[in-house]
Design a protein around this nucleic acid. Structure first.
Lengths: 237, 237
DNA sequence: TTCATGCTTCGATGGCGGCCGAAGCATCGA
DNA sequence: TCGATGCTTCGGCCGCCATCGAAGCATGAA
């Protein structure tokens, strides 16, 4: 059987605590060095090197070498989607009852806004996609999504670099892909446009990365901007 | 970290050849006995029993006992979605180049129509969802989906048992969930409605299960029905 | 009650793989 | 050229777990 053994190989790679810790650390789309990932996983660099090598040949990771550093990142958004899928199962009720679950304020922050691969996820991201759909900026999000002409104008008006994003691929259709959201399980905006949107949020200082977590914090100006541009109340404005 | 270890546990379960073979065998939503699954995986019953027990406590499988038989099925559609996600990675170009891939006619059939958990998947299923969206039978499929009043009338007219399906849950909203599709990566109709729809296709003898494969064959009358009801040309009418 | 079937539990075995120490390559700075 | 840093390769150790034989429980039939 073609698929069966392939599935087992891929899943076995994720099925190691050290490797899954590294993969989760890379879920925000950044590229990290081998030693950084070794620290994340709590293992020695030589062990991490072995893991990273195996995940790379399996197509889970991609490597870019800069000088004597080697930066590792997730190979594709398919991999990120897969990990979100596994997360969803791991977070299901059947497993929650087993171990005690305390959903602290930090988890709440992650659930509200976090980075998924290279774009924004969480309830805020879902709300953004909803509003843009309501206003006709995005059409047919379920079927791959298409950015309308009004959508281009709108995004450009709030400082998103739509044009370079548009130049990077051939068809406009592919830009707004739905991406099953871990906590919300509803689509948000991914792809090149999603990356450009998140990038703009950082450049405007609407949002900031959080150290040691996938959570993204929303600044005061960001809360105001979300309200005025999207009509989203994040509770901090 | 809460999620990291949980992810590794779930993935490690899938990461065994015998277990992944069983999971794939269950992907069509049917419930199989322990011995049947042992045959699928090519292992002894006692070994299979151990695997099934572990997957059940982990929340991957659910068991129903009938007499001296124990029927195992996937615990939820979340699990099915996860496995499709892993399949997508295993089928990615990076892995295809490694081993030889021959996409024979049988793979083409699987890609066109197959069962995913308890509902229909493949290009036909995507087309069905598209048409129903175009005609306003389904609204907002991307955001969980909602069946409109016209949709209820339509489905009832083609012999889908909508009413029992509607009674089985509380809100109409939950019925049409998008489900990332393995080959198409576009949403199709899942949930209770999706199950009722597939069921109707079997009862009308529009489609038939294929032995030893997830593929679903389309009968001649089924092709005609798809064309007249949905305007979908499957190439066999 | 007795036997057969389906499945589970127990115990022992064997192998795969994660882990680290030490050594071997690259790259950068002086 | 020499040392420092980042990373990889090699070798050996250890533990976990998949596997199967045999025995123990259920359920159903004779």
């Amino acid at each position: 059987m073609l698929t069966t053994t392939g599935i087992a190989e891929i899943a076995a790679l994720v099925g190691d605590p050290a490797r899954s810790a590294m993969l989760v650390a890379l879920m925000d789309g950044r590229a990290l060095t081998a030693t950084e990932l070794a620290n994340v996983a709590g293992i020695m660099p030589q062990t991490a090197s072995s893991h990273l090598g195996r995940m790379t040949v399996a197509g889970l990771l991609a490597v870019e070498r800069q000088g004597r550093h080697r930066y590792h990142r997730l190979a594709s958004s398919t991999v990120a989607t897969m990990i979100e899928g596994i997360m969803a199962v791991a977070a299901e009720p059947a497993n929650r009852t087993k171990r005690k679950v305390r959903t602290g304020p930090r988890d709440a922050a992650v659930r509200r806004a976090r980075s998924c691969y290279d774009h924004l996820a969480g309830s805020i991201a879902v709300a953004v996609a909803d509003r843009m759909g309501e206003r006709g900026y995005i059409t047919d999000l379920a079927a791959g999504g298409e950015l309308s002409a009004e959508g281009v104008v709108f995004l450009r008006s709030i400082g998103v670099d739509v044009d370079t994003a548009l130049n990077r691929t051939t068809a406009r259709k592919l830009f707004c892909r739905p991406c099953l959201d871990w906590s919300e399980r509803r689509p948000h905006i991914a792809g090149t446009i999603g990356a450009a949107l998140l990038n703009a949020c950082f450049e405007h200082d609407w949002m900031r990365r959080t150290d040691g977590s996938r959570a993204i914090s929303i600044t005061r100006t960001g809360a105001l901007a979300l309200n005025s541009n999207f009509g989203i109340k994040s509770g901090e404005e």
